[in-house]
Design a protein around this nucleic acid. Structure first.
Lengths: 141, 141
DNA sequence: GATATATATTTGTACCTACAAATAATGTAT
DNA sequence: ATACATTATTTGTAGGTACAAATATATATC
């Protein structure tokens, strides 16, 4: 069943193309795509500190390297990390104002990248695409 | 347009899921997914030696690291690399019998992984999926 | 309360990536 | 023929990944 593999090929290649493109867009800000994603998750916490594990649960792709990504963000002053007083196994990680300001600039860049593609599919097509991938993975019906 | 981002999210996550799964399947053979792909490209050359650049052109995702992947394969005796006599800038890379034999075993593993998913989509659905991704990228119409 | 188990995070290792610079051979213009 | 540009490959650097082991704290069991 050749057409199946062609679809798989498109999924893999397109996924890479998107993340690679975004990496390129962010390059001038000296930030990498996984770092950007962690920053966005932290912003989503709306001021509340969250743990390494919570970040992990919210990532597009699970990674066992959240610690090291947070290291980089901390060195740049974009996040702060302190021991959680309630459960001292955990870390309290929070985005700084500097991090929030940077994110604003990054958001614009990323949005500009997606803009033309958003117009290539209407809502129904985007939904079909999503559903077909889920069906492929056996997550439907 | 939220549904657009949901579709994008599915593409990226599913692409990673597939390559990560295959990496896991291949682990017991001490081979990594990019190495497997290079081996398959070499087999596709049907006995003719091909250059680093030709391998590059056939990869799912372009990588500037073919040399280093070939290094690993060469160390394991799965490929041979010699200077091309016609154009001495190029390398002649060819898969060995050991490489071909290994591929046979890997193919089975990879096929077994894809099998259930192949049954989740019929040919028409797989084609629609492929076309929608191409449309998303603006490669259609 | 001491011991065993579970959970949260970090760290070591061996892969992988992009991008840019270095090296070497070929092709081209003068 | 020589100088310059192009092409093919390799290598350096800084980032990324998975997986397993190490460390520290919390929880459950006896």
């Amino acid at each position: 069943m050749n057409i199946y593999f062609e679809a798989i090929f498109e999924i893999i290649r397109t996924g890479h193309w998107i993340t690679d493109s975004i990496t390129r867009e962010l390059k001038e800000f000296d930030i990498y795509e996984p770092q950007f994603n962690v920053l966005r998750i932290l912003r989503g916490a709306k001021g509340k500190p969250i743990s390494v594990n919570t970040i992990l649960e919210n990532m597009v792709q699970r990674s066992s390297n959240v610690s090291r990504i947070v290291d980089k963000l901390e060195m740049k002053g974009l996040v702060e990390r302190t021991l959680c007083t309630e459960d001292r196994r955990k870390m309290d990680i929070i985005i700084t104002n500097k991090g929030l300001e940077l994110l604003k600039k990054l958001d614009k860049k990323v949005h500009d990248f997606h803009k033309p593609m958003m117009n290539n599919l209407n809502a129904e097509e985007a939904d079909t695409l999503k559903q077909l991938i889920k069906k492929l993975k056996g997550q439907l019906q």
